[in-house]
């Protein structure tokens, strides 16, 4: 098992980077790094977390529904679903939807004198 670098991009946001193991979903690694990606089913079916891999390769942890991966006209695979995608190399990914950030220490950040983080 290895850890690869993942970079997420979206037209309305600054790019972010984090590490992701080769057996871990990119959605899960993003969560651990403090980024909430749009998601619903977490099972490769609903398409909420669809994104384009623009550099590098991913592996499938579970099958992805072609309804959300294929171009409807050409039938070519254009998108990947990050809830069941792990990096196979370092990757750069263009997200369909923007992400939100989350506090990693929501309780201790409330102590007086601590910076939010």
């Amino acid at each position: 098992m290895r850890t690869f670098q993942v970079e997420l991009r979206h037209s309305e946001q600054s790019a972010v980077q984090f590490g992701c193991r080769s057996d871990q979903s990119i959605l899960d690694a993003a969560y651990c790094a403090g980024y909430l990606l749009a998601s619903t089913c977490l099972r490769g079916g609903c398409g909420a977390c669809r994104a384009k891999v623009i550099v590098g390769k991913i592996s499938e942890l579970a099958p992805m529904s072609n309804t959300h991966c294929q171009d409807p006209v050409s039938g070519k695979i254009t998108h990947r679903l990050l809830c069941v995608a792990a990096p196979a190399t370092d990757v750069i990914i263009e997200m369909d939807r923007p992400w939100r950030t989350r506090s990693k220490n929501p309780l201790s950040s409330r102590l007086p004198g601590r910076l939010p983080g």
Binding site: T40, C41, L42, G44, G45, S65
Partner: peptide, 8 residues
């Protein structure tokens, strides 16, 4: 909830 293929 969702089945293992994401069907709700």
């Amino acid at each position: 909830f969702h089945d293992p293929s994401g069907n709700r």
